[in-house]
Simulated scan of single mutants.
Amino acid sequence: MFRAADRLKVVLQHLDRPSSRIKACATSAQVGACTHPVEFRYTTDNDVLTPEQRLFYEENGFLLIKNLIPDEAIDHFRTEFEKICRREVKVPGLLVMRDIAISKSEFLPDQSAVSKLQDFQEDQELFRYCTLPQILTYVECFTGPNIMAMHTMLINKPPDAGKKTSRHPMHQDLHYFPFRPADHIVCAWTAMERVDRSNGCLVVLPGTHKGTLKQHDYPDWEGGVNKMYHGIRDYDPDQERVHLVMEKGDTVFFHPLLIHGSGMNRTQGFRKAISCHYASSDCYYIDVKGTSQEIIEQEVKEIAQRKYNAGSDITLQDTWAVRGRLVKGQRTVL
């Protein structure tokens, strides 16, 4: 008998093969064997996803689309990343991050010192990723037609060299976001090269998107933890998990409540991926005071005050409002 993880792997290999039985029974609100109607909560009926793909996302909180982004686009983003690392390009608002294992004496102007670029919305070349029709076609299945690009990252996971600092603790992305509803937010995460367990692929806990936002803190790890790499305090470490092995150009879309992380990079090279979190422009901001998200608001305020001389009254909502960019449809609330 297959374990849950084994069954998921089988389904992943067949996502592009729609079930004729499912399609024959499907209506806008029902899919399956007709005797077991399904009410879709996390996806929209816009004729992009097959009924099988919708069912998979509804149940698991993620969907992997193979070979979505062409090699030439990936190579273009890689070239722009290298230019930024060499300081040939200066991008307003860009946050350049490095792994804590890299000492200041090793901080040279090349990609070996950069673990992540965050908030690249002002870089015309990298932001092309967020506007790719291939991406937005799928994003609309989760957000609806009015789409904001909210959070951008290019991740350059460094070789770990035994220090274990390249790991990313298990977390939920909604922890960082002061906008709701969660069901109208989705991440698109594209592998820029082969990503597997050897270089720290994404690992997800299927179905956890159906839960609630959990308390996050810095994990107590030997070697320390990178800035803002918060992890969930309490989750079942024995729960079935899936390691997402991806080829260059493969893209996974996942819900902001899905518990996920990534392992160590045990190779000698850097593992690159590019991503954007999207939200419906019909989403709205919330006040995180008095919630578990106060910890991230305080860190973000400290960064904004140090980097931009922001006032002490700045809020988490303020920092997100300046980052969002309309990429499709109309801007309504966000």
Rank of each mutant, 00 (worst) to 15 (best):
E80D: 06
E80L: 13
E80P: 07
F81S: 05
F81I: 03
F81W: 07
F81N: 05
F81E: 01
E82N: 05
E82K: 12
E82R: 04
E82Q: 12
E82W: 06
K83F: 14
K83C: 12
K83P: 08
K83D: 10
K83V: 15
K83W: 14
I84D: 03
I84L: 07
I84H: 09
I84S: 02
I84A: 03
I84E: 02
C85G: 10
C85R: 02
C85V: 14
C85S: 06
C85T: 10
C85F: 11
R86H: 15
R86D: 08
R86A: 15
R86L: 14
R87A: 13
R87L: 15
R87T: 09
R87C: 11
R87K: 12
R87G: 14
R87V: 14
R87Y: 06
E88D: 09
E88A: 15
E88G: 12
E88P: 02
E88S: 13
E88Y: 14
V89H: 02
V89G: 01
V89A: 10
V89E: 01
K90C: 12
K90Q: 10
K90E: 07
K90G: 11
K90V: 09
V91S: 05
V91C: 01
V91L: 00
P92W: 04
P92M: 07
P92R: 08
P92L: 09
P92H: 05
P92F: 12
G93P: 00
G93Y: 00
G93T: 02
G93H: 01
G93W: 00
L94A: 03
L94Y: 06
L94G: 03
L94K: 07
L94T: 00
L95V: 12
L95W: 01
L95R: 06
L95Q: 08
V96T: 06
V96S: 02
V96A: 03
V96R: 02
V96L: 03
M97R: 04
M97H: 05
R98M: 04
R98E: 05
R98N: 10
R98D: 02
R98Y: 10
D99H: 03
D99K: 01
D99G: 05
D99P: 02
I100Q: 01
I100R: 00
I100E: 06
I100G: 05
I100N: 02
I100K: 03
A101Q: 04
A101E: 01
A101K: 06
A101V: 11
I102E: 05
I102L: 09
I102P: 03
I102H: 04
I102R: 04
I102S: 10
I102D: 06
S103I: 04
S103G: 11
S103E: 08
S103T: 13
K104N: 13
K104Y: 09
K104P: 09
K104A: 15
K104E: 13
K104S: 14
S105D: 07
S105I: 13
S105G: 10
S105T: 13
S105A: 14
E106V: 10
E106M: 14
E106Y: 09
E106S: 12
F107P: 00
F107S: 12
F107D: 14
F107Y: 12
F107T: 15
L108A: 13
L108M: 10
L108F: 11
P109M: 14
P109G: 15
D110P: 00
D110Q: 08
D110K: 04
Q111R: 04
Q111V: 11
